[in-house]
Design a binder for these strands. Structure first.
Lengths: 245, 245
DNA sequence: CGGGGCGTTGACTGAGATCAATTATGGTGG
DNA sequence: CCACCATAATTGATCTCAGTCAACGCCCCG
């Protein structure tokens, strides 16, 4: 993430650029619908499972995760979300949150009331389509994660997470060459991929030894993209990002 | 499944009854949009990964699954879909299918051209919302499956699949007391839950021995719902089905 | 300068995979 | 109506990837 955070219109343009390009008017309408912008430190809850929010949240800066807590205390991270993501647009149509949302890094977030969502999507047909399509891409990512966790080894899973995250972050213009910010801890990686911290650590050591990535001081650097993508069996088609090769 | 299959309007009414009740007019409009109805035997592809269909499919009778095939030939089943499901509505907005769809049992399917989808959702605001909401529930189910595969034991995973399937089938009026049709093979279960057939078989034996379920000749009977739901840590909230207790 | 979070490493364990047969079962053709 | 055959279910023996348990080091921040 840059030191200075973007504006709502800026991150929205970057986000939808590759998914469903919006006109300046449409972006302006979305930005006008933002009633409030606030900041959160890392490891803070944005929404809790079971909540019935009356507004949606737009991530302006930082990384948040969706997660579930199981009865025995285990945490499953369901996704990571990046600037430009309307990460709880589902609350507009679903009754109660089936999962919580927490910050991974310090975040800036804007809110859009459900009433405004209703007005926007009924007045701007294309805006409704864009938001719907965005949730469909979301679902495609969940399917890929399901496949990842169910079928791949620890090494492959982590490689896949790196590939996906790099492509998504680059798509919103936040990669610096082969490098992205990586505020995600090894515990977070384990909670996302169904692995223990210990095993994540050992696997990362293997990946470093193979000179495929480097990961230190919250910075991920891809040293050998072909090897990484190959290990991960990574095909970016499901992300629906134009030019994602 | 009943011997006689329902009509499009009948299964649509039953499906959306609990998710987003549709008016008779809205259902009629959807039914009029169906251009073609066809049947398929079991284990047939409906759509292949990479396809760019120009119409959506409505399942009238039978069970289909969404799946991915990995480079090494492994199959990951992503979901099971039941009568009333518009199981590829995503193809209306996404470019190419990120997964295939295949029949689990003999099926009857109706098709709705994308052009008709566009007309319907622009003319009937509520219909668009209903379909959007349906895809959001879909995503919630993927999240629950992700959690299931990543965090639970084989016994818990299978119990969870039984719980979810029973509740969904009952919601569309296709349960007979504590019993539902179960054309899903042990291999299918394994492919859905990230387990081998061998281990699914052993785990089913344990469940039978615990007198929690019985499963024979394509019929699943829930003998002890509290024990099953408890083992699965099952909470139906994510299905967004009214009265799902 | 001390404490808590995060990362790292070693020794041991276990749930589920793999390999290899054997036994039902249901649909089909003669 | 029944032999046949492919598919599905079942069981035993063995192996392995990742989990568990237990320390220890590092670094940042108060």
């Amino acid at each position: 993430m840059d030191l200075k955070s973007g504006t709502a219109s800026e991150v929205l343009r970057l986000k939808f650029r590759s998914i469903y390009p919006l006109t300046a008017d449409e972006i302006a309408a979305l930005e006008r619908a933002c009633t409030r912008t606030y900041s959160l430190a890392r490891n803070q809850d944005v929404i809790r499972e079971g909540d019935r929010p009356d507004s949606c949240n737009l991530l302006i800066d930082g990384i948040v995760c969706r997660y579930k807590i199981l009865p025995d205390g285990q945490r499953q991270i369901l996704s990571f979300q990046f600037p430009g993501d309307l990460f709880d647009s589902q609350s507009f149509l679903l009754d109660a949150m089936d999962h919580g949302i927490a910050t991974i890094s310090p975040c800036v977030i804007a809110t859009i009331p459900h009433a405004a969502m209703a007005a926007l999507t009924s007045e701007h047909l294309r805006l409704g389509r864009a938001l719907w399509k965005d949730t469909l891409v979301d679902a495609a990512i969940f399917r890929e994660w399901l496949t990842n966790v169910a079928r791949r080894t620890a090494y492959q899973r982590i490689a896949h997470l790196f590939c996906e995250t790099f492509i998504r972050v680059r798509a919103i213009g936040m990669a610096r060459g082969d490098t992205i910010d990586w505020p995600i801890t090894q515990r977070d990686i384990g909670d996302a991929l169904g692995l223990t911290v210990v095993h994540v650590n050992r696997t990362l050591r293997d990946m470093r030894n193979a000179h495929i990535i480097s990961l230190q001081s919250s910075t991920l650097r891809i040293l050998d993209w072909p090897a990484l993508a190959d290990a991960a069996q990574f095909d970016p088609a499901y992300l629906q990002i134009r030019d994602a090769a």
